[in-house]
């Protein structure tokens, strides 16, 4: 139960669709704060995650709220845009009120071995973020090997990432256990060397409580208890919250639940 509530509180409730509208985002922002009002004592999610154009809407809905606003950026999800566009994309999101920026790395350049380019890009975006925390999406599904995942993690960390994140959610495979484990190891090694904590965000494909708990166990075992808060660990997910809510209500009532009883926003 404690684990399940922790999962809820670590979710970045996400909508990243071409068809996103203010209406959709407003409704999701409400859900972020009111996961299941029929049951009291539930936390909110950690953040909502939206496109830059929707940050302003979310800011208005979440004014003064503990739920943070994360914005994807840098021509998400492909990252195929000139640097100037990526910087502008990021500055816009921050100026609209984003607390966190989820950028994508240039996978093409990375696979071509242009690691310096990738490093410099991340560093430049970090600067553009100002106070906003930076999550760097490696899009591991396109990196093809765990060696690459590790290398990309190290680059991102050294270039100034506050969080490293597996995936955009647009490419399969996304947040597999092996990939997350590899990235956690990179975070651990960095911490061992420098004492600096980096956050982790698996995203895409974690839609059940069981998988989420597996991830939390992995974090606890690899990084330790100090990572077990939404300051340092997030789930990027759109349908995970309701599954966790169903498990919580199952624990409470003894009855297996139906999705009919949990709001979809």
């Amino acid at each position: 139960m404690q684990g399940l509530k922790m999962v809820l509180n670590m979710i970045d409730l996400t909508t990243l669709e071409g068809k996103d509208t203010p209406g959709k985002v407003k409704q999701m922002c409400y859900k972020a704060q009111h996961l299941h009002d029929a049951y009291t004592g539930l936390p909110t999610v950690a953040a909502v995650c939206v496109y830059p154009s929707m940050v302003g809407v979310a800011r208005k809905e979440l004014k003064g709220n503990i739920v943070k606003i994360a914005s994807v950026s840098t021509a998400f999800p492909s990252g195929q845009a000139p640097m100037s566009v990526k910087l502008e994309d990021t500055r816009f999101a921050v100026s609209e009120g984003a607390d966190e920026i989820d950028m994508v790395i240039s996978r093409g350049k990375f696979l071509a071995g242009e690691y310096n380019f990738v490093f410099d890009e991340i560093a430049a975006i970090k600067e553009a973020c100002g106070k906003a925390r930076l999550k760097v999406i490696l899009e591991t599904g396109e990196l093809s090997t765990l060696d690459n995942v590790r290398r990309a993690s190290d680059i991102a960390i050294h270039a100034g990432a506050d969080f490293i994140k597996t995936s955009t959610g647009k490419i399969q495979p996304a947040a597999t256990m092996q990939v997350t484990y590899t990235m956690l190891m990179a975070i651990r090694d960095h911490y061992d060397r420098t004492g600096i904590m980096i956050g982790m965000k698996p995203a895409g494909g974690i839609s059940t409580s069981k998988l989420a708990l597996h991830n939390l166990v992995m974090v606890k075992e690899v990084l330790g208890n100090q990572w077990l808060s939404n300051e340092w660990f997030r789930f990027g997910a759109s349908s995970l919250a309701n599954d966790v809510l169903m498990q919580i209500m199952k624990t409470e009532t003894g009855l297996y639940q139906s999705p009919d009883y949990f709001s979809m926003d």
């Binding site: 068809k19 509208t21 209406g23 959709k24 407003k26 409704q27 999701m28 409400y30 859900k31 009111h34 996961l35 299941h36 009002d37 029929a38 709001s263 979809m264 926003d265």
Partner: peptide
């Protein structure tokens, strides 16, 4: 939103909730 209590529970009175969709 769908998550609002007033959009989930039966009120049995002249009270309407509006949600938008795409």
């Amino acid at each position: 939103a769908q998550s609002n209590v007033i959009a989930q529970e039966e009120i049995f009175g002249p009270v309407l909730t509006i949600q938008t969709f795409r």
